[in-house]
Design a protein around this nucleic acid. Structure first.
Length: 281
DNA sequence: GCCCAGGTGAAGC
DNA sequence: GCTTCACATGGG
């Protein structure tokens, strides 16, 4: 076991790992256990730093990248609009971060997310990892940990096997995307080199991926900070906080959110989402 | 039993 | 263009 201390300011690890960006992390006491880049890792927040423990890594750049510890949050928060709802959300969730995930895991997880509660998405993802991922060695004392299955590990199974993981009608969508990757029809690394609208157009072509899921992947995996996923909670936040008592079309809401929140709109979105979900019933 | 969940796609006007 | 509906599954 090796460890490192990552100095951080303004980092709320719990809010970050528990804000519907990632679905395969377990809280154990003060710590969080998860898998990043196929490596088991345990994270513990302390004042001004994060303690990270892993089995035997050579360097820790994979973790800095995932946690985005080098990002100056203060600089980002300054770009948010100076209005009442935004200020309230920041005051309530300060230290919430946007992670930088591996595209495949992020895309697959969000394909499984549609009309499911976050608790249920976690259950489905955990089940998927246990059934088709690899058990990481050595087995930690807390119990076995499984990696997120690679596209090949999904592409080789049947729709019925996937449905055993309780993903319901989303099973054929996940299967189709996994097979597209294995057959070389879809290259998730290529999307990294596109601009936002081209990348979005590519993702939306995929079965079961619409604008919302595409924006989640663009924001959480590819780092397009302008992506602004509008789900049921964010729509609720926009309507209640910015257009109370008014009838506003969805199109109007999208136009508003594309212009109002600035260059890091995705971060702002995450603050509104978490604020709405945890602080405003 | 009922309503809802980090939606999407197809079918109806 | 817009509205409605089916799609699995489980929590509250």
């Amino acid at each position: 076991m090796t460890e490192i201390i990552l100095p951080v300011r303004d980092y709320d690890l719990e809010a970050t790992l528990d804000s519907g960006q990632v679905f395969h992390w377990q809280q154990k006491g003060d710590s969080w256990i998860g898998v990043v880049s196929n490596r088991w890792v345990r994270l513990t927040k302390r004042p001004g730093e994060i303690l990270a423990e892993a089995i035997a890594p050579q360097d820790w750049n994979w973790l800095r990248e995932f946690l985005q510890t080098e990002v100056d949050l203060g600089k980002i928060l300054k770009t948010f609009p100076d209005d009442e709802p935004m200020n309230a959300a920041v005051a309530a969730c300060r230290g919430l971060r946007v992670l930088r995930q591996a595209p495949w895991e992020c895309l697959a997880s969000f394909i499984l997310s549609s009309t499911k509660q976050i608790v249920q998405i976690r259950q489905v993802v955990s089940s998927l990892c246990e059934c088709f991922g690899d058990e990481l060695q050595p087995r930690p004392p807390e119990g076995p940990i499984y990696s997120f299955p690679r596209p090949e590990q999904i592409a080789g199974v049947t729709e019925a096997q996937l449905r055993n993981c309780k993903m319901g009608f989303r099973a054929p969508n996940l299967l189709a995307v996994a097979r597209q990757i294995v057959e070389g029809d879809l290259d998730l690394e290529q999307i990294r080199r596109m601009d936002y609208s081209d990348a979005r157009a590519e993702l939306v072509k995929l079965r079961g991926v619409g604008g919302k899921i595409a924006d989640c992947v663009l924001l959480f995996a590819y780092g397009f900070d302008s992506a602004f996923p509008v789900d049921i909670w964010v729509e609720r936040a926009l309507r209640q906080l910015y257009f109370p008592g008014r009838r506003v079309s969805e199109k109007r809401l999208r136009q508003f959110s594309a212009t109002h929140f600035g260059p890091h709109a995705g971060y702002a979105q995450q603050y509104l989402f978490h604020y709405m979900r945890t602080k405003l019933n």
